[in-house]
């Protein structure tokens, strides 16, 4: 049985790791002051100051050109908030083995047609990732305990986004494990 990881928690509180373990995760990465990850939000190349060694670095940007340049730098994950099907970006990310983060919280924050359209965008983005063999990681992106999802729930959401069962499982087990060991 694979071991599951949630590499996209956006908050920290006492007993968080215990709560994550009770949900079925072996380990989590929290992008907060107390956590083991750093999220860099950048719009221009000049804003790009890469993180502390020993911490998982996530670059979050709406600018695909910046993400393309950042792929060659020392960081662990990419978050392209617009989920546009930029083939160039996906190919460069695949060549440099930089996985994309797919936070489920972006769906939770939306309702109705807005959620449906975003699901369609993410679904197509994942299809392109699969075509060019770029890695992706499904994360909860949780900002509170209610937003944290268990591994079977993340797999179910992954399947709703058009992934196969194996792809969804891989995206919360093998790929995050590889990032943590790196």
């Amino acid at each position: 049985m694979p071991e599951y990881y949630d590499l996209g928690v956006r908050f920290w509180e006492d007993g968080l790791e215990k709560h994550a373990n009770s949900l079925g995760f072996k380990s989590i990465c929290s992008f907060s002051k107390e956590g083991n990850g750093i999220e860099i939000r950048a719009q221009r190349l000049e804003d790009l100051k890469l993180g502390t060694p020993g911490k998982i670095t996530l670059l979050s940007s709406q600018n695909p050109e910046l993400l393309k340049k950042a792929c060659r730098r020392d960081l662990d994950m990419l978050l392209f908030g617009r989920f546009l099907p930029d083939v160039g970006l996906v190919r460069i990310a695949a060549e440099n083995k930089k996985p994309f983060e797919i936070p489920v919280s972006v769906l939770l924050e939306r309702k109705g047609a807005e959620r449906a359209l975003l699901m369609s965008k993410i679904s197509f983005f994942l299809k392109i990732c699969n075509k060019y063999k770029a890695d992706f990681i499904l994360t909860s992106g949780a900002t509170n305990k209610f937003f944290m999802k268990s591994p079977p729930e993340l797999v179910a959401i992954g399947e709703a986004l058009g992934l196969s069962h194996d792809q969804a499982v891989k995206s919360i087990s093998i790929i995050p494990e590889y990032i943590l060991e790196r």
Binding site: V104, L107, A156, I157, E159
Partner: peptide, 10 residues
């Protein structure tokens, strides 16, 4: 079942 799980998770 998977769709039901996804619906409840959201």
């Amino acid at each position: 079942i998977q769709n039901v799980k996804a619906a409840l998770a959201l």
